[in-house]
């Protein structure tokens, strides 16, 4: 060897700036070319930002009794209250609570529970999926049979079961404090299966590739192979599932709260607001249930559309 590069790929080209690389990216191109996706992203970001900044932008703190005025109860949207003359954009509920503020604070809880539940489900599912696919044998069979059994029950049933057990075990005095964590765990535990299955099948494909064998030849320990080599290569499908899973988790949380087993009334989520509002639906106070419902619809739809786009954009067969 003469030490001179003979087949070197072009090395004189400068690395483009980060901004140029993003603008040149396939994913960004497919994003900007799809108006529906851009709209979904805008809606999602607006709701995220509004929820995040709720204490700054909401007209009142809807859960501080001192700010509520019972005289302002059942004010219709955009109409001045008969007694105080205050105008509420989206109206008020029975206690005179501003619906707009309640939605902002409610989306906070919904999003917090959604993200935390997805994170919990993803970490659990990815770990079990990696182990199941890489180790194989009876460990694989055990994990996958548990997954099969769990998949044969609806997610809501499992979440209700976990919640029922929680109510039976934990003393009522602390139930309200830990209810939100139990909710996160219940949704996460009902949703880990699809992460585990997806990651397992990708792991099965990746572990027989020669780059994994090259690492095994030099004695890299299995946990390191799983984390450094296999995990980055199986994250694509997980990202898609997690995005769609976020929408599902938010809906599941709302469903549970609607059924009355979710977060306590002191920290209402969108689901709680809908449950409270539906009592007034037939007495003509439609705004109490409609606006939280529309917010939930917009949030779930936008996140779902983003997930759909991501799935198509990451699928090389649909490019």
């Amino acid at each position: 060897m003469n030490g001179k590069p003979i087949v070197s790929a072009s090395s004189g080209i400068k690395t483009p700036s980060l901004f140029a690389r993003i603008a040149d990216n396939d994913l960004f191109y497919s994003f900007i070319r799809s108006p529906l996706t851009v709209a979904a992203a805008v809606v999602t970001l607006v709701i995220f930002a509004a929820a995040l900044c709720a204490p700054l932008i909401s007209p009142q703190n809807p859960f501080d009794p001192a700010t509520l005025n019972l005289m302002e109860g059942f004010t219709p949207p955009m109409a001045p209250n008969a007694f105080t003359g205050n105008v509420f954009w989206l109206g008020t509920d029975a206690q005179g609570r501003d619906i707009f503020s309640a939605i902002l604070y409610g989306s906070r809880v919904s999003l917090l529970v959604g993200f935390a539940a997805v994170g919990f489900a993803a970490v659990l599912g990815i770990t079990l999926g990696l182990v199941s696919g890489y180790v194989g044998g009876w460990v694989d069979s055990l994990i996958m049979r548990i997954a099969d059994v769990q998949l044969s029950f609806p997610a809501i049933l499992i979440a209700l079961l976990i919640f029922g057990v929680f109510k039976g075990i934990v003393p009522p005095s602390v139930q309200d404090k830990v209810a939100i964590y139990v909710l996160i765990a219940a949704i996460g535990l009902s949703d880990w299966v699809q992460y585990a299955r997806t990651v397992r099948s990708s792991t099965l494909a990746e572990k027989n590739k020669e780059y994994v064998q090259a690492a095994r030849v030099i004695g890299v320990p299995a946990p390191v192979i799983l984390l450094r080599h296999i995990l980055p290569n199986v994250m694509g499908p997980v990202l898609v599932i997690a995005t769609i899973g976020l929408a599902l988790a938010i809906i599941l949380e709302s469903t549970l709260s609607f059924l009355g087993v979710g977060v306590p009334p002191t920290q209402p989520s969108l689901g709680t607001l809908i449950r409270v509002g539906q009592d007034f639906l037939f007495s003509g106070e439609w705004w109490i249930v409609l606006f939280p419902g529309l917010t939930l619809l917009a949030l779930a739809l936008a996140v779902n559309l983003l997930g759909d786009w991501l799935r198509d954009a990451l699928n090389p067969k649909l490019r």
Partner: peptide, 10 residues
């Protein structure tokens, strides 16, 4: 990299 005929920049 140089030994196998590639450039260090690769």
């Amino acid at each position: 990299l140089t030994l196998v005929g590639l450039s260090p920049a690769d």
